[in-house]
Design a protein around this nucleic acid. Structure first.
Length: 287
DNA sequence: CGCCAGGACAGCC
DNA sequence: GGCTGTCCTGGC
């Protein structure tokens, strides 16, 4: 995939800790290309080509222009991570090991419409399968950007999704998730999420859970990864296990979400991602 | 073949 | 409110 390479034009000096690879690969977004040190992220009407060099983020934007602050927002570079980590260490005993292990991970800020569909697709599914469904959808949608003769597909806008045929939707092989997807693209468009952004956590959560296929976990994911709610606390099987093993806390998904928010406070979302990354990495190493 | 993968939901108590 | 069975699909 070397033919994809271009020279990166822009540079952002980042306050450490920051780890681009952890940030991209920790399950917040699914559609990215990775070759060598570089990552290619479809983002709205652009493709961001990015790599990390020490404390610098190097990037170029293909397609629609993005400003430096857009890039900062997307990768969570505006978060005061030292303050967040200090807050968590000071508040929760026993989190330091987890935090050190996951250091550099940032919460991204992604488009909510796409994020909602991504996590509806994620229900009872492995990451490769989620990615495959989303890539198929992007290809069907058709909008793309060529980078050195390679075609990178953008995520389709709501008006495009509404025009899809039943045969095209069937090719996604969504199974029981198909009715959730059909309902969502029929009932919602991007503007819905703009109306939500000024609501508080509780009100946002309530509105999101009215979407069919959006339960406790998916609603928290949408708020955390695309609506700036750093106190959101998605509970999946990894976090469930982590809460029990590391903090001795058990309960239902709803109960664990509430407990996580109590224990970790304003930055429960960061604690959740640190714990998630920690648990998954330990599992991969066979511990 | 069986089992499960980064859940949601209805039906039941 | 909590608990249980069920849901498509792909991969091992």
């Amino acid at each position: 995939m070397d033919e994809l390479s271009t020279n990166l034009q822009n540079r952002i000096r980042v306050t450490p800790p920051f780890d681009l690879e952890k940030t991209i690969k920790c399950g917040q977004l699914f559609r990215f290309l990775h070759c060598g040190k570089k990552y290619y992220l479809p983002f709205r009407e652009s493709v961001i080509e990015v790599e990390q060099e020490g404390n610098d983020v190097l990037y170029s934007v293909h397609g629609k222009e993005l400003q430096e602050n857009d890039i900062r927002k997307i990768f969570g570079l505006n978060d005061n991570i030292k303050e967040i980590d200090a807050y968590l260490i000071n508040r929760v005993s026993g989190i330091k090991e987890i935090l050190n292990y996951s250091s550099g991970l940032r919460i991204m800020s992604l488009p909510p419409y796409e994020t909602t569909i991504s996590f509806i697709f994620s229900i009872q599914s492995s990451i490769p399968l989620i990615k495959k469904r989303l890539d198929t959808l992007a290809r069907i949608g058709g909008a793309s950007i060529f980078i050195n003769s390679r075609e990178v597909f953008l995520f389709p806008a709501s008006n495009i999704l509404r025009g899809l045929s039943q045969r095209e939707i069937g090719s996604l092989r969504l199974g029981f998730r198909e009715r959730f997807f059909l309902d969502f693209i029929r009932e919602y468009e991007e503007g819905f999420f703009e109306k939500l952004q000024y609501l508080d956590y509780k009100a946002k959560r309530k509105e999101l859970m009215k979407i069919k296929g959006v339960g406790e976990k998916v609603a928290e994911c949408i708020m955390l990864f695309s609506m700036g709610e750093l106190s959101a606390f998605p509970v999946d099987r990894w976090v469930r296990r982590g809460m029990e093993i590391c903090f001795g806390v058990k309960g239902t998904t709803k109960g664990l979400t509430e407990k996580g928010r109590e224990i970790f406070g304003d930055f429960a979302g960061y604690a959740q991602e640190y714990l998630y990354y920690y648990m998954r990495s330990k599992n991969k190493r066979g511990e």
